[in-house]
Design a protein around this nucleic acid. Structure first.
Lengths: 107, 107
DNA sequence: TAGGTATTTAATTTATTTCTTAAATACTGA
DNA sequence: TCAGTATTTAAGAAATAAATTAAATACCTA
């Protein structure tokens, strides 16, 4: 929880998540979309990975990153449910939808 | 958005939100729940207020704070919808529930 | 194996956050 | 008005986070 919110507090990191929401990308492809250095991007990637929001997979020379959407959705949804009474009715609904997604593997 | 995520990145600030989810409290009552100094708590309160997550109202000698639950729920829900395709079906549902709450003023 | 590319690690500097104490402001009630 | 309480503002110290450059690691291909 702490790590997730820390990870999300950074604009570049949220931008990385937004890219990965649309496609799996390797470290170089991600870095190319920023003006900061590659090591800086690499550090952002490890913050995101340590938070469990993304996962990496080395394939040959490249390291591919992809989003773990359930992780982000689960953390934020459950936080909202905890703090915002208004959202409590969403809880069962969210769980059901998330489960359906896991079952079918569909988007 | 940036301010909301920055606000949520701090454990003491999330703790403040959790307290305010249950009751309106004044600055002193909030500060009493922490080991840090009152000015430190006051600063956390202004970060939360600048993010639009809480509002304050001065009544006599005291400054009362309360949560703006729609603000937190709306920001996090819409962020989740943007980044996590899995959650998109929740959008209409969330809006409907939030609207119902606004209409009735109920929990 | 050698040279090149991709990525991360390490060391360091800079910037930002968070805390503390002291002082200012604002309200209350004698 | 004066003394006391509640809260915030201000200034500065300490801790964290984020960037950079240089070097290390790992993989690919000739």
């Amino acid at each position: 929880m702490q790590r997730v919110f820390e990870a999300l507090a950074s604009a570049p990191r949220r931008k990385i998540l937004a890219y990965l929401a649309h496609a799996e990308l390797n470290a170089g492809e991600i870095a190319a979309r920023f003006e900061i250095s590659k090591p800086a991007v690499s550090q952002h990637l490890s913050v995101l990975e340590n938070a469990g929001l993304i996962v990496s997979e080395k394939r040959g020379q490249y390291v591919y990153y992809r989003l773990v959407p359930e992780s982000l959705a689960n953390t934020l949804n459950s936080y909202v449910q905890e703090v915002c009474p208004v959202s409590r009715p969403l809880k069962a609904e969210s769980a059901a939808i998330a489960q359906r997604k896991v079952d079918t593997g569909s988007r």
